[in-house]
Write a protein that binds this DNA or RNA. Sequence first.
DNA 1: CATATATATCGAAAAAAGTTGATATGAGGT
DNA 2: ACCTCATATCAACTTTTTTCGATATATATG
Lengths: 103, 103
Amino acid sequence: MKTVHEKNAQVFKALCDENRLRVLELLRQGEKCACELLESLDIGQSALSYHMKILTGSGIVESRQEGKWMHYSINQEGSRYAALLLKEITTTEGGKRTGSCCK
Amino acid sequence: MKTVHEKNAQVFKALCDENRLRVLELLRQGEKCACELLESLDIGQSALSYHMKILTGSGIVESRQEGKWMHYSINQEGSRYAALLLKEITTTEGGKRTGSCCK
DNA sequence: CATATATATCGAAAAAAGTTGATATGAGGT
DNA sequence: ACCTCATATCAACTTTTTTCGATATATATG
């Protein structure tokens, strides 16, 4: 059983790693196959596979298999969800203002 | 010298940890002093200090000292920046579409 | 069916992040 | 100045994440 915070953290974990951000930057240009990502990225094949699993698991990236090639692209719905979540967790609730505290 | 991706990852790293998301949830209700966070959070004092440093470092949270107490709150500008960044890194660039690849 | 190629998965090693307890710093009060 | 309390920092340890090399799986091709 995962807490809400654990689940939310999973979405943002996709964006915590330098290499995954590089992948996203490449995918902004449109769908790319794994081999293309691999040669732009200076990491090994198994590491790329690992990162792509995290990215697709977060919903921000989607994958499509074509023969023996995997094609990756940014999933707009997943991205919208992440953006929504970010908005939500950083928006102060109206009304409630707790000034009192210690002392 | 940090790469752009490293700097961007730093913003999202603030959101990767369950405890930091819990802190944000508490701060949504308004400014809170460290002692309040501490008693809601089931982590030690030094761990809280560690997390707050990461949160403030990302720009999403700001701090205010009052005597010996630290007060934390969500920084709207930092949050807007994070939201903007997220939008940016997940928005596909118009025009460019690279279909060709391997085979 | 054998071979070649692309990607996924596994276990171990390396690196990074988080926690803990002890101590340091710094502000207030006596 | 001394003591107390709140927070920060440090070093050691634990846990999690990332990487690597080897191997497995799956698809296409001769």
